[in-house]
């Protein structure tokens, strides 16, 4: 199990690398030159600071402002979607490996539907369907409004403020259903990576179907599934930007808002790109660490 980050890989620059880096540097230089020549772009990074945190004079302390709140919403959104998508992937992935035709039919249709539809379309579909129909049927809105102040506070911290919660929930479910299709495939591949002999030994020992998965198959599938799942979280973080279209105040949506107010195009989008990059790359760092760890423990 030699991963892409195995230490045996050489890390010296080749001539091609140097050529490419030179080109990249030239491109950056040209871009900056363009900004400053002619009608000079006047950078104003302080806008970013102001929209990150603001001083609340009444309370006498600093508070998170829209951009930081957007970042937090993106994290909450990704986290819940990720957890839900993992559950969906686990269940559907297991079902996908069953012999029964109907099981494969259901999981196949789900995966194909989710993967062959633009996520943007899915977002609208689910938002209007889920938001208008299901949430109304469940009486979620009334339930939230009848919550006590402490519960409302908890809801706000882990999800969204009560008024925005139904929209937040549809966003979470939409993302989870979308990413769950990829996780289904990851789990299925993980299960299929376990050799037939393991199934047969588990069966011959008299283990129940559930125990066969729980003690024999899934722990071995994990090696394949876990790093790939963490990797999929990167997609979830990036794809979460799409729910800006249904006015979930996540990072991208807030970026649009701040831009409308300030017109600081470059500062805002560079900042937002960096924030996404930090979130995603920390996930990929975790994925690689897990991958290496599992390779060692083998």
């Amino acid at each position: 199990m030699i991963g892409p980050y195995a230490s045996s890989r050489r890390r010296r620059f080749t001539r091609l690398d140097i050529a490419l880096l030179t080109l990249l540097a030239l491109a950056v230089a040209w871009f900056i030159l363009r900004l400053y020549s002619g009608e000079a772009y006047r950078w104003n990074w302080r806008v970013i600071g102001r929209y990150m945190v603001r001083y609340d004079a009444a309370a006498g302390r600093w508070r998170a402002n829209v951009l930081l709140n957007g970042l937090l919403t993106t994290i909450r959104l990704s986290l819940w979607s990720g957890i839900l998508a993992t559950l969906i992937g686990l269940v559907m992935g297991v079902v996908a490996t069953r012999k029964r035709l109907i099981a494969r039919l259901i999981t196949r249709s789900y995966v194909e539907f989710a993967r062959n539809t633009p996520p943007l379309v899915l977002v609208f579909l689910f938002y209007y369907f889920l938001g208008d129909q299901i949430i109304a049927v469940l009486g979620l809105e009334q339930a939230i409004m009848s919550l006590g102040p402490v519960q409302r506070q908890i809801l706000t911290v882990i999800g969204a403020p009560p008024r925005q919660f139904p929209a937040f929930l549809s966003a979470v479910v939409t993302l989870a259903l979308f990413e769950g299709a990829y996780l289904t495939e990851i789990v299925r591949a993980g299960i299929e990576s376990v050799s037939r002999g393991q199934w047969e030994a588990a069966y011959a020992l008299g283990l129940s179907p559930l125990d066969r998965y729980r003690f024999v198959i899934l722990p071995q599938a994990w090696r394949v599934v876990l790093p790939a799942t963490v990797g999929q979280f990167i997609s979830i973080i990036k794809d979460s930007a799409i729910v800006a279209v249904i006015s979930i105040p996540e990072l991208t949506f807030q970026g649009l808002e701040v831009m409308a107010a300030t017109y600081r195009t470059f500062e805002i989008w560079i900042t937002i790109a960096l924030l996404y990059f930090v979130l995603s790359s920390s996930c990929s760092w975790i994925a690689h660490a897990l991958e290496r760890r599992m390779a060692i423990n083998r």
């Binding site: 393991q198 047969e200 030994a201 125990d211 003690f215």
Partner: peptide, 25 residues
């Protein structure tokens, strides 16, 4: 049943391999 390829559970120790069915079944 004993198989040609042994089919021991690689993620469990020898003891855990033999404990498993006793405990679960």
């Amino acid at each position: 049943m004993v198989f040609q390829q042994f089919n021991l559970f690689p993620h469990m120790t020898v003891g855990e391999n033999i404990d498993l069915a006793q405990r679960r079944v």
